[in-house]
Write a protein that binds this DNA or RNA. Sequence first.
DNA 1: GGACTAAAAGTCAAAATGACACTAAGATAA
DNA 2: TTATCTTAGTGTCATTTTGACTTTTAGTCC
Lengths: 248, 248
Amino acid sequence: MSAIDQTADGLLAPNLAVSTVIFTLRTAETGELKLAIALVKRIRAPFEGLWALPGGPLKPSEALGSAAARNLRETTGLNPRYLEQLYAFGGLDRGPGITPEDRMISIVYWALVGTEEAELALANENVGWFWIDSLPELAFDHSLIVEYALWRLRNKLEYSRLALGFLSETFTLARLREVYAAVLGRDLDPGNFRRMVETDAAIVPTGEKLAGTKHRPPQLYRYDSSMGLTDLGPLSRPAISKATGEKK
Amino acid sequence: MSAIDQTADGLLAPNLAVSTVIFTLRTAETGELKLAIALVKRIRAPFEGLWALPGGPLKPSEALGSAAARNLRETTGLNPRYLEQLYAFGGLDRGPGITPEDRMISIVYWALVGTEEAELALANENVGWFWIDSLPELAFDHSLIVEYALWRLRNKLEYSRLALGFLSETFTLARLREVYAAVLGRDLDPGNFRRMVETDAAIVPTGEKLAGTKHRPPQLYRYDSSMGLTDLGPLSRPAISKATGEKK
DNA sequence: GGACTAAAAGTCAAAATGACACTAAGATAA
DNA sequence: TTATCTTAGTGTCATTTTGACTTTTAGTCC
């Protein structure tokens, strides 16, 4: 049961796993949107009984991002709206009682899933959503990982369209503003927020209004998905050696 | 010589390597600073004879960042001024002729080394500096990796103090501006640049001036290193499971 | 002393930002 | 039928930030 094996050239190959921080927004009892993540309960040592990030080993002929997406589907039954690599954690101090022999390299992704879908996600005694502001004790160094993922999410939200990853096809500006408020943890001025969104060519009015409110009916907007939620630079292109570069 | 081995639980563990994109600035024949990276020549298949990023396997009880720093020392004889994880590349299409059995996961770091030190770095027929704007054909998907590292460097330069990673203890504003120009590939207005730097409390005048110029002697500045070159968020803290969190 | 060079300081208009006030369009209550 | 409530949507204004540019300063070189 050792996590380490001898490779052909005499070096020790540490075990490799892919985990994902899955964010969603859910409606709290107070009626406001709140940020939550998906956790699974560990059913074996170490840290048996504690909550941890969903994850698993990497399959032999599986790309890293595919492994994260598969894992997300298997634990929540959902497809991510957005998926990005977060960081590779491979320190030797990833938890008390972890010896260098048990050493584990985790390639961690983070994902956004829609508010509506998240309600339908499978949840049982071993899988569940947890409010980001009141997480239980987590296994390994997963608390740090979640903290870092949250930091990235908050940063990116301010200079990208990531917020749309939480919403469905059409939405009102008030709803979009709620997303920002929930993630950033502070309210935004409605007027200034509207000005900001209107300068973004990727967010366009549908022409229809949302009926049934007890006040003036708001305009519905749509996201022009040809523009992408964020700028990943060269990584958005397929990975091809410019050298002998054929293949597409 | 297979790159894959059977682990105890029956899964195949892919080989894992750590590579680094090492940036420096060097003085070109024209006298201006230009961005360069360190490459090593491959002495075995695949891609034998082509240039590649310096890297090597991860040692059993070595942290990922330590492996990158060690590797940097071994290939250039230098210590990095700045070192940050870039990305984990683990796709199945990392180069022509690479089968799923040869699959390799590369955890790539990027580093900055000082302009002065870089001149002293070891260079022979198998290691050398290459101008970023005229790279040779690279092995594997290393062209993409370099492109991505450059994109990150350029982005971070604009909202951090990373430029100082290329310079030594004291420097003039003109020199610092040269660094920006070299990395970003465009000139900056001297007046506006000065205004920007002067709002940064981490860059302070030493009180001394640089003599020997054929014009008005410029003020020397120093970097207050208590502030850090960039904000890495929660990752700047030591990784400790909040759970049973002792250890420092 | 005059020409030359880059340092350093200053000017100014345009653009972006933050804090508000005001008007519009519906539902609901009197 | 009219007043009230609530949020949508528009408009204003002062402050800050940004980019382009001018002027003055302190040295070297001839």
